[in-house]
Amino acid sequence: MVKLNVNSKSHDCDISNDMPLLWALRDILNLTGTKYGCGVAQCGACVVHLDGEAVRSCVTKVSRAEGKKITTIEGLSLNNDHPLQKAWQEIDVPQCGYCHSGQIMSAAVLLRENKNPTDEDIDNAMAGNICRCGTYPRVRKAIHIAADMQRKAENKS
């Protein structure tokens, strides 16, 4: 039995320790927002937060996630209103959309650690996320928009 805390909910999963977190999320907990793209940490479609870090769930065994806080795209915000989600919607970043759970989860770590990222910071953070549709220009633009939103919200409070 593996105990997983996902999006602030605790789950007891009858799975083996070495199942990658990706498949536990998708096939056991039915949280399908986290995607399978390559299985070997090459594409970034499977990025989730493990105690706040953007781990690739396709190579992260559930044993590593036990006792840690797992956040998936479904749990990034309550109302689809994280600044990144709002920025993504504002300029229609996704095309097919398959890679964007991972794109957003990666970008969220960038914005937490760097409130005012430059293009170079964005490249450094997002280099691991492949988009076959080629939405990169909009990914970059939306991260800048989200950073603006985040800074404005913080200045208000």
């Binding site: 990025v47 781990v55 960038l110 953070a125």
Partner: peptide, 10 residues
């Protein structure tokens, strides 16, 4: 950021 070694390297 999202590109920390341990995100992929277990």
């Amino acid at each position: 950021y999202a590109m920390k070694c341990a995100n992929c390297h277990q």
